[in-house]
């Protein structure tokens, strides 16, 4: 009990320390928590590393997860300063609760891609193979953004998909692909790039019918809106967009 109390005090002390005195060039200081869609994992860390070069002394903590779960936690009062969601619908959860500061910015988009194990052992050629019951197929559950996009693509193309499993997030799908337990999964282009050599991607023309937009907004209940806004501006600036582009995102605006 004492140990917990001490560490809480230490944390509180950290947060209130005026770091600005050691960073004369900038007006922002302190720390923020950024909730970001799971597909931004690692990418925002890289942007934050660049950001800290010009803003020494600031602390940015990331919490990556499914956008809907993150939005739910923000509405439930999680202390978050900046939120990047993988779909307009999940950002709407936050704006409906009047928790977004200003209008959220649509900053990047992501395109669906077929992920297959290295070497494509299931001999997948296109989206039509998702209707083949003899192939092992993983698709995101319709409740999560990647699944909503999959539903949109199948509805637009009239392909009757026959999945073996409806995964709760992209990472589960990629685990099953990389272990060659499924022949194909429908994920995003950036996920395929991030998955490494055990997964390869097959682009398909129908993906244009379900492009996924990402939105970002500071959270109005933030105690450090200055830093949240500064980091958001940096993400949307040339340094941030360069990192996002390299990860496979399409830059908007």
């Amino acid at each position: 009990m004492t140990a917990i109390a001490t560490s809480v005090l230490a944390l509180a002390g950290c947060a209130s320390t005026p770091a600005a005195t050691t960073a004369p060039k900038t007006s922002v200081s302190g720390s923020i928590v950024v909730d970001a869609a799971a597909s931004l994992t690692g990418i925002f860390d890289e942007i934050a590393t660049d950001f800290k070069k010009s803003h020494p002394g600031v602390t940015i903590t990331f919490n990556y997860g499914g956008s809907s779960a993150l939005a739910t936690s923000i509405v439930s009062g999680a202390p978050v300063d900046l939120f990047a969601s993988a779909s307009p619908a999940t950002m709407k959860t936050v704006t409906d609760a009047n928790l977004a500061k200003g209008t959220p910015t649509t900053f990047v988009s992501n395109t669906l891609e077929i992920a297959v194990p290295a070497g494509n052992p299931g001999k997948i050629t296109g989206l039509a193979d998702f209707a083949d019951a003899s192939k092992k197929i993983a698709i995101c559950a319709p409740e999560v953004p990647c699944g909503a996009a999959a539903v949109a693509v199948f509805a637009a193309t009239g392909i009757k998909d026959k999945p073996d499993t409806l995964v709760p997030d992209v990472k589960t799908a990629l685990t099953q692909v990389s272990l060659d337990e499924v022949d194909a999964a429908l994920v995003y282009h950036t996920d395929v790039l991030a998955a490494g050599s055990k997964v390869q991607g097959i682009a398909f023309p129908e993906a244009q019918k379900a492009i996924n937009n990402y939105l970002i907004a500071p959270i109005s209940s933030s105690k450090n809106l200055a830093l949240a806004a500064a980091f958001e501006t940096f993400i949307l600036g040339k340094d941030g967009t360069a990192v996002l582009k390299r990860a496979g995102f399409t830059i908007i605006g």
Binding site: S68, T72, A141, E143, V144, D164, T165, L166, P168, Q176
Partner: peptide, 27 residues
């Protein structure tokens, strides 16, 4: 379960998985 058995209605979707997915759209 969700990693090894997956999630498909009537085959592998148990109550905890149904609850987790419902939490995404309709708490």
């Amino acid at each position: 379960t969700i990693t090894f058995a997956g999630n498909f209605p009537g085959v592998t979707r148990t109550m905890p998985i149904a609850a987790y997915l419902a939490l995404e759209t309709s708490p």
